[in-house]
Design a protein around this nucleic acid. Structure first.
Lengths: 243, 243
DNA sequence: CAGTGGTCTAGACCACGAA
DNA sequence: TCGTGGTCTAGACCACTGT
């Protein structure tokens, strides 16, 4: 904790929670803070980035640094069949882009199948007041289903609508594997997200009873504004016994 | 991608994969690289930290920067009942510290119960060649079970042994909720981990059939060396029907 | 002790948003 | 155009490792 920028971050955190900041919740500029703390601009920026990664601040290029208010936390949930899904949806805006393409090496994420097969790609981008809260690329092989663009605006930021369309087409997802990692945004994601703040990455692969991949997705969740929730029910004792 | 440090990172990545680095896989010092690239030390460091977060490099204070070899990736898995768990265990070293304490505000992570109740804390620290690969704090309320320190060295970095002890004591975990986030290490974790690289955080809460919390854990997984895997089986159609 | 990674400074310049 | 955040520089000093 001897680190200068962490000391400054702690002090700013007290300033923020104290609420002595003017109605717009705007912080002094980085240069001002540097003068006040007798620190350099990069040190102040490191402090701000700590708070930004914690979800306390929004740093907006060319505009200013603001206290996050009405902290709406998007929750990725593996229990999609739950009724609670549609409840308490935060006031975010979800946009989709759909296109056809062929699977290429390393480009679609969790598709372990052969290359060159035609896919439908859904690219979801979720924003709240111009801040990106989630990115998701969802892929459905055309061999599985020829889905249309959903007529209604999407209700989920990560393609639950697509899975519902699949279900409506009679395609049952039997198992879902979600590989979760933390990293920094790659160049493709950095177009939308702060390149210095970590992201949670979910690579999802859904299979039907035959073991065929019917849907795959890459979900990118910036830290501080999102979390992921996984609920596991221990299989009842009827079938599994210590071997 | 115009960023200088990303260009340097790309170049270093090619250098690393090319394998022209001497047998110990050691990179030139930061000062040397700065000279070679006509860049400043912080810029070179930013480039190295990108690769470090990707798991390509190990930066060892006072010693040097080395190419990660035998990339052993620890996998956190929610299917603890699976037989595959014990298979293919990487050559890591797991250490435990056990102590008694009382639950205090905000200190134990996923325990939503009353404060002041006595707990057993298991602190797991997993290393491979002096590099920390995982941290885990596991809590069991004494009211649930009075467990002993496992006699054998622990086989799991995140307390599967504790859960097995619980099972042996007749306490069945019925549901497990795992809350997953990405962030930077906090001061307590930064003692063990690089403070600039993101970590994956799993907050686990295990309940029995009565809904009582029988075990809670905070697992910290540094990016690049670990991942988490969650497998969800869609409940069979016998019970759930579209409502 | 020398050589390494880790942090910070003071200031420059660029990129973006709003008036 | 101005004020903001975003990136980089050249160099200083500290902290750690191995000899």
């Amino acid at each position: 904790m001897a680190n200068r920028h962490l000391v400054i971050a702690d002090d700013l955190r007290r300033l923020i929670n104290g609420g002595q900041l003017g109605n717009d919740g705007r912080l002094p500029s980085e240069r001002m803070l540097a003068k006040q703390y007798r620190a350099s601009v990069p040190t102040v920026r490191n402090a701000l980035e700590v708070l930004q990664a914690e979800g306390c601040l929004d740093m907006i290029h060319g505009h200013g640094t603001f206290v996050r208010r009405g902290l709406e936390c998007l929750v990725y949930d593996n229990t999609r069949y739950s009724d609670a899904r549609a409840a308490a949806k935060p006031s975010v805006y979800v946009e989709v882009n759909v296109r056809r393409l062929e699977s290429s090496a390393a480009m679609p994420p969790g598709l372990p199948e052969a290359l060159g097969l035609p896919l439908t790609e859904y690219f979801f981008i979720t924003t709240q007041r111009n801040m990106v809260h989630a990115l998701a690329w969802v892929y459905v092989p055309c061999a599985v289903a020829e889905l249309d663009l959903p007529a209604t605006p999407p209700t989920s930021p990560w393609g639950d609508d697509v899975r519902e369309q699949l279900a409506a087409a009679g395609i049952q997802v039997e198992s879902t594997v979600e590989r979760v990692t933390a990293r920094l945004p790659n160049p493709r994601e950095a177009v939308y997200l702060r390149p210095t703040a970590p992201v949670l990455v979910v690579e999802r692969t859904s299979r039907d009873a035959a073991g065929r991949v019917v849907e795959a997705a890459l979900v990118v969740l910036p830290s501080g504004r999102t979390e992921a929730l996984f609920t596991t029910l221990t299989p009842s004792d009827t079938t599994t016994e210590a071997s």
